[in-house]
Design a protein around this nucleic acid. Structure first.
Lengths: 212, 212
DNA sequence: ATACCAATAGTTCATCTGTACTACTGAAAT
DNA sequence: ATTTCAGTAGTACAGATGAACTATTGGTAT
């Protein structure tokens, strides 16, 4: 088509060298895209964003150190001209909506084929949004769904570690009746029949980290 | 050094296009390595192995369809000259030892830097083994650890879904006392205090899949 | 042969769990 | 001002859970 006078400037943020390299190769096979920066963490990305002035930032959500959505919020603040495309491993509903709320304009899972990734970069550069249908559909169902309160999440984290209601109560300096109430509310909100299912679905939905 | 008369022939097996591309780019930056095949599943790899005759197979453990370690066993059977280097996301102890037992000669996590990956391919081609220190150390502790029986794993999977002992018993056509025994044995073997902790540590160790 | 182990089934008992309520407080939203 | 909601605490109760045992069966390893 037209001469690529002004190629799209892309920054890649991912802690995996393999993924960085894969994205770089994929994107640079397009002659209207140039990868201007590669970062291995949210902090590193923030450090590089001002001097490299990317149009699109391809960002992994799961990285050591700064939380992905926090990195997005900060990035939007210090360099709002960069449009952020989230790219992550899992289809964890809560992570996605958090990222979108934080200001991401697009979302991709890592198993996306090359053409789709390239397309997403183009769409974002043209000031569009790129949320795959299957995900936006599921998000509609997720948004309305009851969200766990901070306290409930705290309790549920301890449930995952195998603590009894009494032990949770001691650790949080509340009555064991209150702990029980919180657990019960978690069960209702998560649609679980017992604390075990609550724990596993919380992990499945990315509410609680299991890897350390 | 020497002229690369016979480059190392590598096959890449991974369901993520990004990872395939990243590995390909990384490996082909070495002039004594050539990527002769790319597969997106274990079955696909088995289909391609005979005609491409790779020296080293870089294989992801987590792929849809065939289980990674099953794919390794099969690959060792039909094409034993290929040396298998496992590359996976997580440091799940059981998955690793399963893969090693299945016949993998090397293990890498996906956050490994380029030089390390290249080095691993060279080591495997030279008929060596490549198991990172930190992993082999942990593996020593893991091997001796009590392993769950098939039945126990089956029961524990249902525990993760929130089934009670009685419900598990019904589903597996056994007495609820037996189901309870299995759960109890799982607790002991996993060092868990209750079924919830058993479920979460099973997930953490990769004994039970949580993503679908 | 025999020793070992997984799977099965059982008993007893103290404790834990989850449900279904009510009720008070303080903060935030309207 | 009033409503709404999270967090707190309580009671009562049926049922589930886990520990600690014993015991039988069938298969595998030595």
């Amino acid at each position: 088509m037209a001469n690529p006078v002004k190629p799209i400037r892309v920054m890649i943020v991912d802690d995996h060298p393999v993924v960085r390299m894969g994205l770089k190769t994929m994107l640079e096979s397009e002659d209207d895209i140039t990868v201007v920066a590669m970062a291995d963490s949210g902090a590193d990305a923030l450090r590089q964003v001002e001097e490299t002035d990317p149009d699109v930032v391809l960002m992994d959500l799961r990285m050591p150190g700064m939380d992905g959505s926090d990195a997005i919020v900060e990035m939007r603040r210090v360099w709002p001209s960069a449009r952020i495309l989230v790219l992550t491993n899992y289809q964890e509903d809560e992570s996605i909506s958090k990222a979108i709320q934080a200001g991401a304009m697009g979302y991709l899972v890592k198993c996306t084929p090359q053409e789709e990734i390239v397309k997403a970069v183009h769409v974002l550069h043209a000031h569009g949004r790129f949320i795959p249908d299957e995900i936006s559909k599921r998000l509609l169902g997720t948004i309305g769904r009851d969200k766990l309160s901070e306290r409930e999440l705290e309790v549920l984290t301890l449930v995952c570690k195998g603590l009894s209601n009494k032990e949770i109560a001691q650790k949080l300096f509340i009555s064991d009746k209150t702990a029980r109430n919180h657990v019960s509310n978690c069960l209702i909100k998560l649609g679980a029949t017992d604390r075990t299912e609550a724990a596993t679905t919380a992990i499945k939905r990315g509410l609680i980290r299991v890897d350390d």
